[in-house]
Design a protein around this nucleic acid. Structure first.
Length: 281
DNA sequence: TACCAGGTGTGGC
DNA sequence: GCCACACATGGT
């Protein structure tokens, strides 16, 4: 059961909701964890998730926003039911029990996944944190994510100084494109293929990053981001060499309507069980 | 030290 | 259209 109050959302543990799986599965980078208490920052908002007996509580002054953010209106039991018999899903669903796909801010998610290219999670988190701290609005105890305009008005050298490396030029170019009128909200109205075609026009966004953005920020489930870990999963499934586009097509076809969810459970379980660094903070 | 990490852009063919 | 290669950075 999920109940909304003025300052918190209470979620009983028989719901599909596990903060560790949700935050550490690699879909979001701006969160902290201390003594199993997670605090997440989204745009200019913030929420803290605590365990309270047989419930989890999301403490926030923006209940409606985080009800949507955590995708609490979606029935995950139905989704899990539809993918549980697919290849490799049994172990991944057990490992990632309680994982949900968040509905993240478009701009923040776009910037985050441009940074993610050929990078590792702890480093991605660090770069995003430094961007928020140096350009975001201060809200008493935390920094929001900067606006498009503020990001567009920096220099390439500035992003390099934050550790973005060669992605610095992509960040600036994409922030400027959006500032100059590339309408990221209008993509919501497009079908997945056309929305992807638009995203690919932005610097630093290739096929894989576009799929991540569509999955984590536009709630598209008919995508399958293929990264280094998913390539290993494909190797387990098919035991042959194939180009990335062929892999993507095959995996979307194999996992069906909810391929995007399946992908995230697979990514989380394989990345974690193969010794990838899981950040403590 | 070479290799890896939620890959992409570019130039040559 | 396909392919090889360069690309910052920090951890192992």
């Amino acid at each position: 059961m999920i109940t909304l109050h003025s300052d918190k959302i209470i979620i009983s543990k028989d719901e599909c909701f596990d903060p560790k799986a949700i935050f550490e599965c690699g879909q979001v980078f701006r969160y902290t964890c201390s003594n199993d208490v997670y605090t997440v920052y989204a745009g200019d908002y913030c929420a803290t998730v605590i365990e309270q007996g047989d419930c989890y509580e999301i403490l926030t002054s923006n209940v409606d926003y985080f009800y949507t953010y955590f995708d609490l209106a979606t029935d995950y039991n139905m989704i899990i039911e539809s993918i549980k018999d697919k290849p490799l899903m049994k172990e991944s669903l057990i490992f990632g029990k309680g994982l949900r796909i968040l509905r993240q801010e478009h701009f923040e998610n776009i910037i985050s996944f441009i940074i993610s290219a050929n990078n590792n999670v702890p480093r991605i988190k660090g770069i995003i944190e430094r961007i928020a701290k140096s350009l975001g609005a201060f809200h008493g105890s935390y920094y929001g994510f900067p606006t498009v305009k503020i990001m567009a008005n920096q220099s390439e050298e500035f992003y390099k100084s934050l550790g973005a490396g060669y992605r610095a030029s992509y960040l600036l170019s994409t922030a400027k494109a959006i500032d100059y009128g590339f309408d990221i909200n209008s993509l919501e109205k497009l079908d997945t293929q056309n929305a992807k075609r638009e995203l690919l026009k932005l610097k630093g966004i290739g096929s894989k990053v576009a799929d991540c953005i569509l999955l984590f920020s536009y709630s598209r489930k008919d995508v399958f981001p293929v990264d280094t870990w998913i390539k290993k999963v494909y190797g387990r499934l098919c035991n042959n060499e194939e180009c990335v586009e062929k892999m993507r097509e095959y995996l979307i076809d194999l996992y069906g309507e909810y391929a995007g969810y399946a992908q995230q459970y697979l990514f989380y379980s394989h990345r974690s069980s193969n010794g990838a660094t899981i950040s403590i903070n």
